[in-house]
Design a protein around this nucleic acid. Structure first.
Lengths: 328, 328
DNA sequence: CTGTTAGCGCGTTCAG
DNA sequence: CTGAACGCGCTAACAG
């Protein structure tokens, strides 16, 4: 491998002048520039990023913590965030926690060890305090996960309102025996959703009971299984609220298999506004949120903090909207 | 930020002994270990990865080049590859080329500049020679993209055979007016598929004509649009081969909308064996391949080459299998 | 078992 | 406008 020292020798200039040319500094003579350019061509020089990273104490890398990439919600999020970061000059490294706190801690440790300039957290089982303790003064931004925002910037959808609206929509159609499908109940996000759900029920004068929620439902297959359990009984719910369009697709399929008519017998509400909802029969009612906008705001905040991290944490909520189609 | 020099001062040892403790070298006294451990606790030392990377000329980072992450095939691939790499001690940074050669070149340049230890290419518009020219002796592995394998390791599904089998399956059911849906025809992978398609047709005594293929079909919405075009005419094809289960879902939906019966009027073949195919009506016939196995083999090859890159390139083909359900 | 010494490749003062 | 010198934080000979 060749270095800027080789360039210096060949061009007859010093290391520093070569560096200046490489970094397009303003005050270098045209002559020097040309000499260096020629030397670069001559020996096929390639800059060594690792030297730069050490010297500049930056590596233009953003960590992205997700539970799993193989889920339409997270793959959309990764796509948007990754693109937005790249536009701000940062590449994205993916960390999958697989819902394990131990894996999460591992990632925070990587951040503390400066494997990346900042970390975007999209799902966590730890509290802000716990995270803070692990990462110290390094940069963390929380995206679409519920958190108080006392210690870190938080950009997220108002999940409570989203589920409130969705629930209210079902209630207005006369549905009363509702079921809320969640993935991991103990996460703050799911707690918020449960809150919105209870709130809407209360407003409608319906008393909430714990069997109106279901835990561990996240994939198409989960939806299929849940539907098969539900629809083989006689007193299945008449309104199903899911946390993902894919779960809704599973439920829809199962309903049809059991000759349960959608939406006559049961209403189904998706979540995420994935394109699959435009190819389902009947077309899927779902919840949409401004993912692109969120991603851009996160990338902006990231760039800002990398440069200057002494601001107090910010918090921004985004409004979700119902996309009413045929399953409700 | 504290450094190993601080640890050395506090523990009364030298930099090197501290480094040895940190890296769990065999020959260090219990006493030294304890001194260093104590110093670490005392000042809350965290290793600076960037120093290590420069010194070791490695950063335990694997690039993963995909056209887009927001596609079920690629998000599955990323998930599997990312997990397999992590098990080999490598993290994964995602590069989305968005089907732009310019973006691709940008990534190869990053590799040449040692932003990562190696690159896994899952889709490319450049030839092996062109890539080689850009990356020099740095490590590239091609995964599930067709390539001769003269210059790089190639691990991929036998796409030609896969489409040959799928086509033959349709032909055996008496389908004769077939249509092959592809994304970007000019990629080597699509060329291989087209090959398998033609081959099967020839074996059945059917002459291939260019209107038996369709370009630019990749998403659910593409499938919906294509179906709407197809099914509004009278002489639509009676066998549809797709490159993705999602495209198949779009076609399926459109068929139903136009009162075209599946599989009576038209057979539809998916690709990828995504779980969505288990929630479609009718259940989707599709093509399955051993993604986990491929990912593990890629990760192994990666680790091998990082350590010793002087082997000749290897090539391994994996067999795809038909999953026959109800749409054919 | 430990300390000394030398870089890894680069950007950036500070003089001139 | 340019060069000399320094150091980012760490590992790895080599000698003892």
């Amino acid at each position: 491998m060749t270095t800027i020292l080789d360039l210096a020798r060949i061009s007859g200039l010093s290391k520093s002048t070569v560096s200046r040319v490489l970094n397009h500094h303003p005050h270098v003579s045209q002559e020097s520039k040309e000499k260096v350019e020629k030397a670069i061509q001559q020996i096929g020089y390639k800059r060594n990023a690792r030297g730069v990273h050490l010297r500049k104490k930056q590596n233009q890398l953003i960590g992205l913590l997700v539970p799993t990439v193989d889920h339409p919600y997270f793959s959309q999020l990764i796509s948007a965030l990754s693109e937005a970061c790249r536009q701000s000059g940062y590449e994205t490294v993916i960390y999958q926690s697989d819902f394990q706190p131990s894996e999460e801690r591992y990632v925070y440790d990587k951040l503390a060890q400066q494997e990346m300039d900042a970390l975007v957290v999209t799902h966590t089982l730890l509290s802000e305090q716990e995270i803070k303790e692990l990462v110290g003064n390094r940069i963390v931004i929380i995206c679409n996960e519920q958190a108080p925002g006392n210690l870190f910037d938080v950009f997220s959808v108002d999940e409570e309102q989203a589920i409130f609206d969705a629930t209210t929509h079902l209630l207005k159609q006369g549905r009363t025996r509702l079921l809320l499908c969640m993935d991991y109940e103990q996460t703050p996000l799911q707690q918020k959703r449960l809150c919105g759900f209870k709130h809407a029920l209360k407003d409608a004068g319906i008393t909430y009971s714990p069997d109106m929620k279901r835990n561990g439902v996240m994939t198409i297959d989960d939806g299929l299984r849940l539907g098969d359990t539900l629809f083989q009984t006689e007193d299945y719910p008449d309104g199903l609220l899911t946390g993902s369009d894919f779960v809704a697709m599973g439920l829809l399929h199962s309903a049809r298999k059991h000759s349960v008519n959608i939406p006559t017998d049961v209403s189904i509400m998706g979540f995420d506004n994935h394109s699959i909802g435009r190819a389902s029969i009947p077309l899927l009612t779902t919840v949409d949120y401004p993912l692109q906008t969120i991603a851009k705001d996160v990338a902006k905040a990231l760039a800002l903090r990398v440069h200057q991290n002494e601001m107090p944490p910010r918090r921004k909520l985004y409004k979700a909207t119902l996309v009413i189609r045929e399953t409700t």
